[in-house]
């Protein structure tokens, strides 16, 4: 447990997390690994875990008819995979695939959501951590929609 707590505290997503919250998060966490090409989760599935990446890269993919899988973002160590776990209806909206051996901490989302409901200070803290990730991804999506590198850039 000691090792897991240290890893969680040192992960940038949880930077500055209060000690009592670290213990709560840690109670929902476990070490996981994925082999290259293995999926962490699939679109439409329940968002019942999210991942703190420690090693290796993960591709976020959407499937488009006739185009196969299109990667719209890759993530790497010190980032998180999965934001839908905090937002109803708690379903994944894309696939996440390991591009190489991935080591991560998986957080049981239902477990952490329960703790957030019971302790709104923890819930607010989690919101403040997830919101910037969501905003960054929204801005990135806007730039991608603008297709700025097209001939009208």
């Amino acid at each position: 447990m000691e090792g897991l707590e240290r890893i969680i505290r040192e992960h940038p997503f949880f930077a500055g997390l209060e000690e009592r919250f670290t213990a709560l998060v840690c109670g929902c966490a476990k070490n996981v690994r994925f082999e290259a090409a293995q999926y962490l989760f699939h679109e439409g599935g329940p968002a019942d875990e999210f991942y703190l990446l420690r090693h290796g890269r993960v591709a976020l993919e959407l499937r488009a008819p006739g185009r196969g899988a299109v990667t719209f973002q890759t993530l790497r160590e010190s980032e998180i995979v999965g934001v839908s776990w905090l937002i109803p209806p708690y379903r994944w909206t894309y696939d996440a695939k390991a591009l190489e051996l991935v080591r991560a901490i998986a957080i049981d989302a239902a477990c952490l959501r329960r703790k957030c409901e019971a302790d709104h200070d923890l819930g607010y803290d989690m919101m403040k951590r997830v919101m910037p990730v969501l905003v960054q991804r929204l801005q990135a999506a806007r730039l991608q929609i603008l297709d700025v590198y097209g001939s009208h850039g």
Binding site: G68, V70, T71, F72, Q73, T74, L99, L143, Q144, D147
Partner: peptide, 12 residues
């Protein structure tokens, strides 16, 4: 900005 499955570099 986006890539098919045969690209192993960064996307974003």
């Amino acid at each position: 900005d986006h890539a098919a499955g045969d690209w192993h570099g960064h996307v974003g």
